[in-house]
Design a protein around this nucleic acid. Structure first.
Lengths: 224, 224
DNA sequence: AATATTTTTTAAGGCTTTTTTAAGGTTAAA
DNA sequence: TTTAACCTTAAAAAAGCCTTAAAAAATATT
């Protein structure tokens, strides 16, 4: 789950980032309106946290531009002012939610969660493939009576494999989606996690295997 | 369908890559002008997405060099500037299309699609010829119940044969498109892979054959 | 703040698959 | 019939991948 923070007050931006990364969001952070629009236009984020007062280009303009370009990433607007006129123009320009500074971390998290949930496609808590189940909210992989805990990265990799059940997913893809765009993780990082997952699948006696297709990537496959 | 991204801003490059790979393009990514020219010279790409501002060698130079060397891969130029002089020199140097940052993923996809369509091909996921099917996203060749896995180069060669279904494709062509322009692969490399493919077509009981026309190349042919 | 635990990264050696090479047999054009 | 082009195959070489242990980093606990 990827979040973009556009906030020029760096201290606040850092605080936001910390709150979100603690909840396992992948966070990118920029500090002015131009960068904000650039990054947001990539369309890769699940939520954008957008300050209104920004250098070069304000939050309203950014929201407006995004919607005009059919980027429908949910936007959570931030502002110090609590005036009605602001609220109106914020929501008109395309924001989905609105929050006035200062705010409690809980409130931020609640709103971000609400916005990402609304993106719909059902946030799958309980999912699976072949003969195993995976509960994303408890990070538990299970088959029958046997179960085992997955840590964060294991879970993310497995979720990707499940989501791409009928195609080969490349290591590059896994890296950008689990480690992030600017990470310097390499193929071996993915390989290591694939190995961890295989061991755990084996531990719960699953007959699903993570097949590797050389030069292409991985795919889940149910054995017998 | 292969795309080369030449863009030094790594985050943007990765975002581009993600957008394209989600649409089943095969994407290679380099981050400076030298690598950009090297990769592009291979001639194996269907589109090159080329930033203008690059370390070592800018986008104009690369486009110019490519055209001078008779590499006619369509080029989509990217730039932050939206000035007319830039547009002109971009198109003069050999670019086919032009896009200013920031942009929406849809726009990118529309332009890339337009450039590749012009080449006359389609984005193939599930394709085939005669009595067999080939699923490019799982690298699986099948006819009826029988199926077999193709490795990377086998897939690439087969895709070329299918794409050129009505014409003879030469070994030189296959070499430059699968091995790259500066590879030292020879005719025998192609012959070996043709042989591998024939064996696998036979294995799935296909009646399609890869016909060889001496001194000319190969062509797919459906028997009776 | 120090220590313990868990997670993540790194690196090396071994294994498997892919790719190349090479040699001898086959085909078809001249 | 001759000969260059092509086919097939085995085996060598290279590349890619797996696994594991151990180091480093992050996180939790005391």
């Amino acid at each position: 789950m990827q979040v973009l923070i556009v906030e020029d007050e760096k201290r606040l931006a850092r605080a936001l980032k910390q709150i979100l990364t603690e909840q396992k969001y992948m966070v990118d952070m920029v500090h002015d309106g131009n960068d904000g629009l650039d990054y947001a236009m990539s369309g890769i984020y699940d939520v954008i946290i957008l300050d209104i007062m920004l250098p070069y280009r304000d939050g309203f303009q950014i929201a407006y531009e995004l919607r005009r370009n059919k980027i429908d990433t949910p936007i959570l607007m931030l502002t110090a002012k609590d005036t009605v006129p602001d609220k109106v123009s914020g929501l008109n320009s395309g924001a989905d939610d609105y929050m006035t500074k200062p705010f409690a971390p809980e409130e931020l998290l609640a709103r971000v969660k609400a916005l990402t949930r609304r993106r719909g496609e059902v946030i799958l808590d309980e999912t699976g493939f072949g003969d195993f189940n995976f509960n994303a909210s408890t990070c538990t992989l299970s088959k029958g009576a046997k179960s085992v805990h997955l840590n964060y990265k294991e879970s993310e990799v497995l979720k990707l494999l499940i989501a791409n059940r009928d195609t080969i997913i490349s290591k590059e893809d896994i890296i950008t989606k689990v480690w992030g765009y600017d990470s310097d993780a390499g193929a071996n990082n993915v390989e290591a996690y694939i190995s961890f997952l295989r061991r755990k699948l084996h531990f719960i006696n699953s007959d699903t295997e993570i097949k590797s297709i050389k030069k292409m990537g991985y795919r889940l496959e149910q054995k017998p």
